Simulated assay, not measured.
Amino acid sequence: MQKEILAGKTALVTGASRGIGKAIALKLAEEGANVVVNYLNSQTQANFIVNEINKMEKGRAIDVKGDVTDILSIRRMARIIDDEFGGIDILVNNAGQLLRPQYWKDVTERVWEQSLKINLQGPLLCIQTFVPMMERRGGGKIVNIASMYGITGSAFVPAYTAAKAGLINLTLGLAKNLAPQINVNAIAPGNIATEMTNSAGDDFLEQIVSETPLKRLGTPEEVADAVLFLSSPMSSFITGHVLVVDGGLLLQ
Results as ranks from 00 to 15, higher is better:
residue 73 S to V: 08
residue 226 A to H: 04
residue 80 I to W: 08
residue 46 A to D: 14
residue 230 L to W: 02
residue 164 K to Q: 01
residue 52 E to S: 05
residue 29 A to N: 11
residue 185 N to K: 07
residue 26 L to K: 06
residue 249 L to P: 01
residue 245 V to A: 04
residue 17 S to L: 12
residue 175 A to E: 06
residue 44 T to I: 11
residue 226 A to D: 03
residue 116 L to C: 04
residue 17 S to K: 10
residue 127 I to F: 12
residue 205 L to G: 08
residue 180 P to V: 05
residue 112 W to N: 08
residue 216 R to W: 06
residue 169 N to E: 10
residue 12 L to D: 10
residue 166 G to E: 14
residue 118 I to P: 05
residue 34 N to R: 12
residue 143 V to L: 08
residue 66 G to W: 05
residue 211 E to L: 13
residue 114 Q to R: 15
residue 2 Q to S: 15
residue 16 A to K: 14
residue 197 T to Q: 14
residue 244 V to N: 01
residue 86 G to S: 03
residue 224 A to N: 11
residue 88 I to S: 08
residue 88 I to Y: 01
residue 196 M to W: 01
residue 106 D to K: 13
residue 173 G to M: 14
residue 227 V to E: 02
residue 89 D to W: 10
residue 121 Q to A: 14
residue 37 V to K: 10
residue 152 T to G: 05
residue 221 E to Y: 03
residue 63 D to Q: 05
residue 141 K to L: 03
residue 170 L to C: 04
residue 80 I to Y: 09
residue 214 L to Q: 11
residue 138 G to Y: 10
residue 157 V to E: 09
residue 197 T to N: 07
residue 186 A to V: 07
residue 166 G to V: 08
residue 20 I to Q: 11
residue 187 I to Q: 11
residue 94 N to W: 01
residue 208 I to Q: 01
residue 246 D to M: 06
residue 70 D to Y: 06
residue 125 L to V: 03
residue 228 L to C: 07
residue 41 N to E: 09
residue 106 D to Q: 06
residue 166 G to A: 08
residue 155 A to D: 08
residue 252 Q to V: 12
residue 96 G to N: 02
residue 146 A to L: 02
residue 31 E to N: 14
residue 38 N to G: 07
residue 193 A to S: 11
residue 167 L to V: 10
residue 68 V to P: 07
residue 234 M to V: 11
residue 147 S to M: 13
residue 236 S to C: 10
residue 43 Q to M: 15
residue 91 L to Q: 05
residue 214 L to M: 10
residue 19 G to F: 02
residue 93 N to Y: 00
residue 163 A to R: 06
residue 160 Y to S: 02
residue 234 M to D: 13
residue 166 G to T: 14
residue 144 N to T: 14
residue 136 R to C: 14
residue 212 T to R: 12
residue 155 A to G: 05
residue 96 G to Y: 00
residue 58 K to M: 03
residue 18 R to G: 12
residue 4 E to S: 15
residue 4 E to W: 12
residue 169 N to F: 09
residue 13 V to A: 08
residue 129 T to W: 09
residue 14 T to I: 11
residue 169 N to C: 08
residue 151 I to H: 12
residue 159 A to T: 04
residue 3 K to S: 09
residue 12 L to M: 12
residue 178 L to K: 09
residue 84 E to Q: 13
residue 140 G to S: 07
residue 60 R to L: 02
residue 105 K to Y: 14
residue 145 I to M: 09
residue 40 L to K: 15
residue 85 F to Q: 05
residue 129 T to E: 15
residue 106 D to W: 06
residue 41 N to C: 07
residue 24 I to S: 01
residue 51 N to D: 15
residue 76 R to Q: 15
residue 163 A to E: 09
residue 229 F to G: 03
residue 32 G to I: 13
residue 167 L to G: 13
residue 11 A to G: 09
residue 107 V to N: 10
residue 180 P to A: 01
residue 154 S to V: 01
residue 157 V to P: 02
residue 230 L to T: 00
residue 145 I to P: 09
residue 161 T to G: 03
residue 146 A to K: 09
residue 156 F to S: 04
residue 110 R to W: 05
residue 219 T to D: 09
residue 204 F to P: 03
